[in-house]
Amino acid sequence: MKTESRLEKILASGNLAVTSECGPPRGALPEKVKEKASLLKDHVDAVNVTDNQTAMVRMSSWAAGVIIKQMGMDPILQMVTRDRNRLAMQSDIIGAYSLGINTMLCLSGDHPKFGDHPMAKGVFDLDSVQLVQMVKKMRDEGKFQGGADIQNPPKMFVGAAANPFADPFELRVMRLAKKIKAGADFIQTQCIYNLDKFEKYMKMVCDRGLDKQVYILAGITPMKSAGMARYMKNKVPGMDVPDEIIKRLAGVSKEEQPEEGIKIAVESIQRLKEVNGVHGFHIMAIEWEEKVPQIVEKTGLFPRPVI
């Protein structure tokens, strides 16, 4: 075991892991964090805490993470390289670890253009691959990126993201290989709607033996409506939403669409459970956290193993 991370223990035990996501509030509202997290409490192994997601200012990821930790849950500290240079990132990693956070997800982050401060300078001192390298080096070598020794180095279980659907497709497995080479212990994927394409991707992943080197959690986001599906298809960069999904949602009444969306998510998980190399699920129910428990229950992933 590399770390004390509960997620690592679950994955190492061979169980399918379940993670979910909690976007911190846009204000000093600790109760909001608790409210969202409590909806997930018994149904997930760990909760991603986003870092200024979509380049909008929110409560810092580590602060919201600590609130979640205090509730007896396990936060996954998301960290984007957009907002901080390597000094600031390392100090936050030490700080978060000192407050009990032992799992993180390394990302480059959405471009500032998409957020509420498009005039801000994106930092991007490191990219996500280099961030993974840095966190691993801190853990395994006990050294800062600059080379100096760390006293009591933070032992983070290191995650990275993968988008099997972005272009160019042929590069996607190579990019995953690169993140593994950099030191990623686990991967959370972009939301999967095109299951055929994802299975093709996973076949390529397994053909290269990468499934033996990293734990892959398949990303699932239930659709609330046909409108959301269209928006995801047309407006969200790097998202692959097949027309059948939109048709299926549009085929039922507006009132029934949320339920249909949950059904699609449940069916997707059932199918992906059988896919080689899938080690768990990352269920991102955007502003719809209350639906996560029933998805977990309906897919037979409840109760969560006690480790």
Partner: peptide, 20 residues
């Protein structure tokens, strides 16, 4: 690259074009 990424494309590439 809009994010000066040195290790490959981010997840936002669409039809070979930049997300921005």
């Amino acid at each position: 690259c809009s994010k000066h990424l040195l290790n490959g494309p981010c997840g936002g590439t669409s039809n070979g074009m930049c997300e921005i």
